[in-house]
Nucleic acid binder design. Structure first.
Length: 275
DNA sequence: AAAGTGCACAACCGCGAAAGT
DNA sequence: AACTTTCGCGGTTGTGCACTT
């Protein structure tokens, strides 16, 4: 039966989180771990719904998050994984330690999609868009400016002869034989599937206390600063299931980022200065 | 310098799955 | 087995910032 919308209650706050709220949430999770999200806001003294708390934590406050742009390698990996998994962002994210599904989804929608289109590749099917036969349809769908991102892609995938893009993806990933992959490798020049070996999360090392920024310039620096400053050895994460991303093993380092009293927090990434 | 436009990202919404009773 | 509750996911929207005119 219906689930009641969690934020229906009058008086629950929506919109951007304040420093104070972040602080409360962090404090609470530090003390209690991630338990019942529904109870979190109440116990933490927040006027938010549990869902909102969970989202804020997983997408922004988690200590093991990398911030900043995806590196080229990560981007390739996303493309590769997307070809195999479709829009299963959480699955994709589980292969990229420190990245959230939301972040990857956003990056996909804003950067990668365009990139692939430019290369003549349908970002949904990872197959070439430029079939002569589709062109009329393509231009037709492109007329619908706002819907271009969705409808164009969807149409294209239909044109290619698959009944349903979603199912098609499933099928693709199941049935993708050598031929199919070969084609894709050929087409996705520079984003060749085999070029990016699938690695298990535990095989990936997250730089926890980098001496210098390893990823691309700009804002990613803040993540380095963030991690560096937060590195604290031997912190034991309170009894909680933090394994959303199956990172249990290598998370040891990330967990070490924490400190009971946040005394080392307050760098750029923690925009508000939580001290 | 101001207005307009586009982009990037954080946050919300609704749905389905899983777990609990 | 049926129903309820909670969680997690994917799609979408809103907002602030950067860039362009």
């Amino acid at each position: 039966m219906g689930r009641q919308p969690c934020c229906d209650k009058v008086g629950l706050k929506k919109g951007p989180w304040t420093a104070e709220e972040d602080k409360k949430l962090i404090k609470f999770i530090l003390a209690n771990g991630q338990c019942c999200w529904r109870a979190v806001p109440k116990l933490a003294g927040l006027l938010r719904c549990g869902k909102s708390c969970r989202l804020r934590w997983t997408n922004y406050l988690r200590p093991d998050l990398k911030r900043g742009l995806l590196s080229e390698y990560e981007e390739k990996m996303v493309i590769d994984l997307h070809a195999q998994l479709g829009n299963r962002w959480s699955k994709i994210a589980s292969h990229l330690p420190g990245r959230t599904d939301n972040e990857i989804k956003n990056h996909w929608n804003t950067h990668i999609k365009k990139k692939l289109r430019k290369m003549g590749i349908d970002p949904l099917t990872h197959k070439p868009i430029a079939n002569v036969n589709d062109q009329s349809h393509q231009s037709q769908s492109q007329k619908q400016e706002g819907e271009e991102e969705q409808s164009c892609v969807a149409n294209d995938s239909f044109e290619i002869g698959q009944n349903n893009p979603i199912q098609a993806k499933e099928e693709d990933s199941k049935n993708m034989g050598g031929d199919e992959l070969d084609k894709m490798e050929f087409l996705i020049d520079g984003f060749c599937i085999d070029e990016v070996p699938l690695i298990e999360p535990h095989e990936i090392l997250v730089p926890c206390a980098p001496s210098s920024s390893t990823s691309s310039s700009s804002s990613s620096n803040s993540s380095s600063i963030f991690l560096e400053d937060l590195y604290l050895p031997d912190f034991e994460w309170p009894d909680c299931d933090y394994s959303n991303n199956n990172n249990n093993n290598q998370n040891n380092d990330s967990m070490g980022l924490w400190d009971d009293d946040f005394s080392s927090w307050g760098q750029d990434s923690w925009a508000y200065g939580l001290l």
